[in-house]
């Protein structure tokens, strides 16, 4: 699942680009990027515990932003970081009078373990997923650029 950290976008913070052939792949690579900003060597995070994440948003872009916020929530609330994801994203059409709107629903099982300083190399903390220069593109592939507040 490809993602890479890029330099020079925001001097003080961390920026990554991620992509995926499917929306689910994009979400997984983006979540891995967020975790990898905090923890080196994701392969050392074992799938010992799981959390079920269900989210809904008006657009795919907002859904991704919310999903990445969840990664940070569990890092602080439960001290857990994830390395494996099973993600399903569905579009739900809902009629509001004459106006037909879509909502996107994510269901995810995220697997990982508690941060263990003896085992995991902690790099830095991520405070928030910003909207600053957040670029979300749907072309041949799904692509995103995200700036993380650290």
């Amino acid at each position: 699942m490809p993602y890479k950290f890029i330099d020079g976008v925001v001097v003080a913070d961390i920026t990554f680009e991620a992509s995926g052939d499917t929306l689910e792949e994009l979400f997984e690579s983006s979540a891995n990027a967020v975790t990898n900003a905090m923890i080196d060597k994701l392969e050392r995070i074992e799938a010992k515990e799981e959390r079920k994440i269900t989210l809904e948003a008006e657009t795919e872009e907002k859904l991704l932003h919310k999903f990445l916020d969840e990664i940070l929530f569990y890092k602080d609330a439960d001290n857990i970081v994830f390395s494996k994801y099973k993600i399903k994203i569905k579009e739900k059409k809902a009629a509001h009078g004459c106006d037909e709107r879509s909502n996107f629903i994510l269901e995810c099982i995220a697997k990982g373990e508690e941060i263990d300083n003896a085992k995991h190399t902690v790099l830095t903390d991520v405070k928030a997923v910003s909207w600053h220069m957040f670029k979300f593109e749907k072309g041949k592939q799904w692509k995103v650029q995200v700036v993380l507040d650290v």
Binding site: K66, D69, L72, F73, K75, D76, A77, K127, A128, V129, W131, D149
Partner: peptide, 17 residues
């Protein structure tokens, strides 16, 4: 204010948007 403050900011940024 650690994760608490980060979440307050995140919640209200979303609401304001």
């Amino acid at each position: 204010s650690r994760g608490f403050g980060h979440q307050v900011a995140t919640d209200y940024l979303e609401l304001f948007l």
